[in-house]
Amino acid sequence: MAMPRGSAPPSGPESVPGPPTGPAGDPAGTLAIVGRSWLWILGAAVATLAPGVLILVWPDETLHVLAVLLGLNLLVTGCFRFVSSFARREHADRLAGLLVAVLFVLAGVLCLRHPLQTVTALSLLVGIVWLVSGVVTLHSGLATADLPHRGLVIAAGVLGIVAGIVVLALPAESAHALIRLLGLWLVLLGLFELVLALAWRAALRGSRAPAPPGPGTAA
């Protein structure tokens, strides 16, 4: 997730800065506040890490189980990214975040469809999502001004790009190897998002309010 530009200082350890939230009861403002919470970023990390661990622990489960795990991961991650996109100040950045969120949700729905439940199809979908998400994150890390932990965000984007390229380039001759690879990348991406969440928590406790991770983290 990339970060919008900072604003007012936080009022407490878990207070969240951000762009003006608009009139009271404004849904977009409420989503922006939620998206700035480090706990929200932590939730996204867990949503990526958990299915990766399950896939690695039970690599011999049926393809249907793999499709369900990947599909649910993409759907939940898409929801997290949808909310996080409202924490962006710039309309272009917010639009990019929303498009990435929609991509995650669509890929999740496709993973859950029976006609597409082959290892090759699942790998293609997940690889494309990771690649696009990584590109958006890398761009945000390079282009966003006053970005705390810029190196972590850039590294997260690069990790997502590498994960997408590797999954797309790997021959689909060994379903077992592909399943393990998908699980391994999910674990790595989840761990990296966990580090970003903790770094964002530390930044929130600083003297000046940073901007939260924005569209498309590593996953």
Rank of each mutant, 00 (worst) to 15 (best):
V46H: 03
V65F: 02
L198M: 03
P19R: 13
R201V: 05
A24H: 00
F86L: 04
L112M: 04
G160L: 05
A50M: 03
A24V: 12
F104K: 10
W185A: 12
T21S: 04
R150Y: 00
L138R: 06
V105T: 08
G151T: 13
L125A: 05
G29E: 03
E173H: 11
T21E: 13
A202Y: 00
V65K: 03
P27D: 13
T144Q: 10
G190E: 00
P9G: 03
R89S: 07
A67I: 01
P27F: 12
C79K: 13
L188T: 06
A156F: 09
P213S: 14
L204C: 13
L54E: 05
A143V: 15
P23C: 13
A28R: 06
F82G: 08
A87G: 10
A107P: 05
L142G: 12
L184S: 10
G151W: 13
D26R: 14
R205F: 02
G6Q: 08
L74M: 14
W185Q: 14
G97C: 06
S84C: 08
A218R: 11
L103I: 11
G35A: 03
L188P: 12
V166M: 10
L186M: 15
L168M: 15
L42S: 14
P27L: 15
S15G: 05
G12D: 05
L152F: 08
E90T: 02
L98I: 07
A101L: 12
V187H: 06
L110G: 12
L70H: 07
P115R: 10
A121L: 04
D26E: 15
I179N: 00
A143S: 11
L184E: 08
F82P: 11
I179M: 03
F104D: 10
T77E: 09
E14C: 10
A202M: 00
L191G: 07
L95Q: 00
A197G: 06
P10H: 03
L95F: 09
S7Y: 15
E14N: 13
P10N: 11
S84H: 05
V100S: 05
S37P: 07
V126K: 02
G214K: 09
L147W: 12
L170E: 15
V83A: 07
V166K: 12
S85E: 09
L54K: 05
V100P: 11
F80W: 01
P171Q: 05
I154R: 14
L49A: 07
T217A: 12
G6C: 05
D146W: 01
V167E: 09
A199D: 03
R180N: 06
P210T: 02
R150Q: 04
R205W: 09
V187N: 04
D60K: 01
R180S: 01
F192S: 02
P215D: 13
A163I: 10
G78N: 11
W58T: 14
V83S: 01
N73R: 14
A67M: 12
L66C: 09
E193H: 15
H64D: 15
G190C: 01
T120C: 08
L63V: 13
H176F: 14
A92C: 02
S37H: 07
A197M: 09
D60A: 10
R208M: 08
V68C: 04
R36G: 14
G6N: 09
R36C: 10
A32E: 01
V135L: 08
W38A: 11
A145L: 04
Q117K: 04
